[in-house]
Design a protein around this nucleic acid. Structure first.
Lengths: 248, 248
DNA sequence: TATAGTTGTCTATATCAATAGACAAATTTA
DNA sequence: TAAATTTGTCTATTGATATAGACAACTATA
């Protein structure tokens, strides 16, 4: 970013070491440090952020724990990892095709599935009666062995009975929908927000508590406008950015 | 959300009261509590979140400070404010037209402006030489007297000399561009991320430290594809959600 | 081989965050 | 009016957070 070094805030409910860890993460994602480059020494960071050296050490310790940094006594502290993935969002957003060229391996893992009555919001989105049975899938998107998304998806249970088996087998929503005669579909609407990751996201996305997730709530429809899928996806903001596509 | 009550995490750098305040904010934005409705009593909230009543009180105190809640001794604690604004993003995103029907008054305030040499990222986006002069505008979007966005915008200084005066006068990017012969323009690309608000955002958006901002980085182009504007906008996640438009 | 620079460990202290319990003050309800 | 409910205030205790200083351990370099 072009921005100035934003200052660190005290007694606001977020500890200084967490704020500094966030800032370092952001700087890395931002490309301020080259891959494998050394971070400034602890005393320099402490001065830059206006805190004690030990506070900087707490931040670094957290990032070492997360696998982002590696500290070597006598040498310095080094950046292990890369920039953020750029995840495209558009009318034809697909998980597997979206990350082409950025990662070599990607698939969706089915964590669990269940059938439940539709709440108001889901019933409206899918155009079915409130209380009608829907299938809920809990999934995790993975790229190169790293978790990059965590989603909850609902389908009309009557129309898509058995889709959980198809998902488990194929690891792909697109492929699963093909089995139900749907060869193409569009993203009708997307609503975007952000929040702190909850316990479930933390575990599934391998995040440290306090991390931020981008949240998309989307409805997919067939080419003639019939809603087929309602999904809420969470992306770790420190590893993923969303790139909005114009036309598509 | 349909989700289960996600649990509260301890000793992670984010204090319990801040986490609970975030959860309450989210619940309000989510429509779980009607406007002017009473929150559950402190003891009930404490039990729900598995913390001490005093911890809940700290969270409530922060939200009272932020103007979201109002506590009345003997009666209860009440929700003052509304759901999130839904801010549309699409090829023809405009600030003033986007929020129509949700707010009655809206405009963009020019906070400051300057001329500076273009950095690499901005030069590339605007299709000019690195180091060429660009005009930078710092602006705040306001709706009904509330700050809903904070943006930094760059224009080619050669082509748009004096645009800061036009912005100050009209309070509108669209109107200002008209003076330079641009009657229509499109959003070419948008990249989306989220982070903790920095000191500048906190002040401009009237947020409490620790708040989350949604960040969009966008390039606007003329109808024939010529880049005219590069902008980074920050939206307070607790007050704004972004609604992605399909066609448009 | 010194020397400077860097990370690692230890002790000590002050403040913040969270829990616990008791009771006061205000409001609503029976 | 009395009782129940709810927020407000106070004291006390524990653990996490942050600061401060000193020195050890390790690495690179002059």
């Amino acid at each position: 970013m072009t921005g100035l070094a934003s200052s660190i805030e005290r007694r606001n409910g977020v500890s200084l070491w967490r704020q500094i860890a966030d800032r370092i993460l952001q700087a890395i994602a931002n490309g301020d440090f080259a891959e494998n480059a050394a971070l400034p020494p602890e005393v320099a960071l402490a001065e830059r952020y206006g805190v004690n050296r030990h506070t900087v050490r707490s931040a670094i310790a957290a990032l070492v724990q997360e696998g982002v940094l590696k500290a070597e006594q006598g040498r310095g502290t080094f950046v292990l990892s890369r920039k953020r993935l750029s995840y495209p969002i558009g009318a034809r957003t697909r998980f597997s095709t979206g990350l082409q060229g950025q990662t070599s391996e990607r698939h969706i893992a089915l964590l669990s599935s269940s059938t439940e009555p539709a709440g108001r919001r889901i019933a409206e989105a899918l155009g079915i009666a409130k209380g009608a049975a829907v299938i809920r899938l809990e999934t995790r998107g993975e790229a190169d062995g790293h978790a990059v998304s965590r989603a909850t998806t609902w389908f009309d249970a009557k129309r898509f009975a058995g889709i959980e088996a198809a998902m488990a087998e194929t690891g792909s929503i697109t492929a699963s929908l093909k089995r139900f005669g749907i060869n193409d579909y569009l993203r009708q609407s997307t609503v975007l927000s952000a929040r702190h990751a909850d316990a479930d996201d933390l575990a599934a996305l391998d995040l440290q508590p306090g991390a931020i997730v981008l949240v998309t709530v989307a409805v997919n429809v067939t080419l003639d406008g019939q809603p087929i899928q309602f999904a809420e996806s969470r992306f770790p903001a420190e590893r993923v950015e969303l790139r909005l596509l114009a036309g598509d």
